[in-house]
Amino acid sequence: MIIIGENIHVIAKEVSQAIRERNAKVIQDLAIQQKEAGADYLDLNVGPVKRDTEETMKWLVECVQEVVDLPLSIDTMNPVAMEAGLKYCKRRPLLNSASGKTDSKQNMLPLAKKYNCDVVVSVMTDKGMPPDLETKVESILDTVTYANELGIPNEDIWIDPIILPVSTAGEGQRIAVENLEFIKILQDVVPGVKSTVGLSNVSNGVPHHLRPILNRTYLVMLERSGLYSAIADPLDEELMALIRGKMENVRQLIYKVMDKEEIDMSSLTQKEIDYVKTARILMGETLYSDAWLEI
C-alpha cells in the first residue's frame, strides 16, 4: 500500500500560516516527520492559491524537496497552481486531481501528459457525484477513455471513487460499502489502472478521538479489496502498523466481519472488540451513531 502523507494541508492553520509567512521550518518538519513515519509520497494540499501562485508553488515544492527526496502529490483545483507545482518537482509527481468534469478534462488532464506524471482521476462529473456504482463505473470509463486519447496510459491513472463521511444519515454507510465494491471490480473494468482514496473523509464529522479507528479499519478493508494507495495520516502509528503487516489479529477480525463470519466476542480484547464493531459499521451491518463503540 502506497501512503500519500496528508499532513501538509492548508486546512491546518499552522500550515496555511507557514505558507503565507514563508516559514520553511514548519513545512519541512512535517515533511521529515511523515517521511520518517513511512510515507511514500507527500501530498501538498495548497487550496486554490489565488495570490502569487507561481512563486508560492515554487517556494513550497523546493522547500519540501530540500529536506526529503519523496515524490510529491500536488493537490489543488487550480490548474495554474497545479502547473506551477508540477514544474518544480524533481521526481515524477502525482497530479491530484483531475475528474470527469469538462473543465478538469480540458485544463487538468493535458497537464498530466505535458509533465509526464501520474494523475488522480475522481469519479466526479459535471452532474456532481455519481449516485451509485453503475454511474461511477460509467464516469470512470468515460474519463479514462478521454485520458487515453490524450496519450495518458492506464498505468499512470489513479482512480479515486471519492470517500464520503460514514456518519451522514444512512447514505454514508451505503456509500462506504459501495466503494469497497468499486475498488474490487476496478481492475476488471479498466485493467492496469491504479487507485487511491482520501481516507480521512470517511470519519469527517465524527468526534475527534473516534476518527482514527474508523480510518484504520476502512483502510484495511479497502486494501483487501485491492486499493493501491491512500492519502492518509502516516503519523498514525497504528494505521501504519496495520498496513505494514503488523497487528495480524485485528486484520483477521476485520476480514471475518467482511466475510460475515460469526465472531466470538467473549474471547477478544477491548481493542479487538472495538475493531469488530467499527468494521460492522463500515459494512453497513449496524446503523451508525457516535456511540457505536458503547453498545
Partner: peptide, 15 residues
C-alpha cells in the same frame, strides 16, 4: 430528524 442521533440517544438512555 436524524437517525444517527436517534440511535445515539437511545444507546445513552438505555445504559
Amino acid at each position: 430528524l436524524d437517525i444517527n442521533l436517534l440511535k445515539e440517544l437511545n444507546i445513552k438512555l438505555c445504559k
